[in-house]
Amino acid sequence: MSKKLDYILQLADNAMILGHRLSELCGHGPILEQDMAVTNIALDLIGQARSLYQYAAEVEGQGRSEDDMAFMRDAWKFKNALLVEYPNKDFAYTIARQFLFDAYNYPFYKLLAESKDQTLAAIAEKSLKEVTYHLRYSSEWMIRLGDGTEESHQRIQTALNELWMYTGELLEASEADTAMLAEGIGVDLAKIAPLWHQKVDEILSIATLEKPEVKWMQKGGKIGSHTEHLGFLLAEMQYLQRAYPGQEW
């Protein structure tokens, strides 16, 4: 059962951490319209995280709540991919991170909707509509920044190059991935990889961007070895529940 819990947490933590990252831009977006667009996506992701955390708590069976899952676990218990904890830095980094993740997340949820696990399939089906829009949003921005001005082109290319080494682990199966695939619950990442590359190649080509030639991939997120960034993110995200445990809306 614990492999299943790990698997659900991988998904939930991806949604939670990326959602929180995007929520940091609330009130700080480069322009009003984008402020709203980015925080809309943040809300979608946090909503997905809630459903997944509720299910994780149920599968765990220790009487913990979705809030406990999000706010009372330490960094090494988080199983999100390293990509999603990367700081916003500037709008180019925010968009590149989003695009690289969406290009993975969209085919992932599409396949997860066929999972033998009814709850995961239902969450995937609901999330897919949101993720479809996220991918459209981030793709259009990749194209506009890449094929925009000299400065926007250079900035998005830099962001892409720097984030590239975190994309490897998205497509590499963890123990939980392998175990859940064997049970017909999880998604086959070998099927996601070609779809991810196809989408990335398609958009980079329209955006006149170079596919980075970084070969070395940094990994560890799925087993709880995170970059220093996650600790700072959690310190802010978990502060309230840690300082005043049990607070509710």
Partner: peptide
């Protein structure tokens, strides 16, 4: 009304600003 770089982005922005 809202600001956008081009028509496609204007539709996306309108979706985010006015159809929430």
């Amino acid at each position: 009304s809202l600001h956008a770089a081009d028509e496609e982005m204007a539709i996306q922005n309108a979706r985010d600003v006015y159809t929430r």
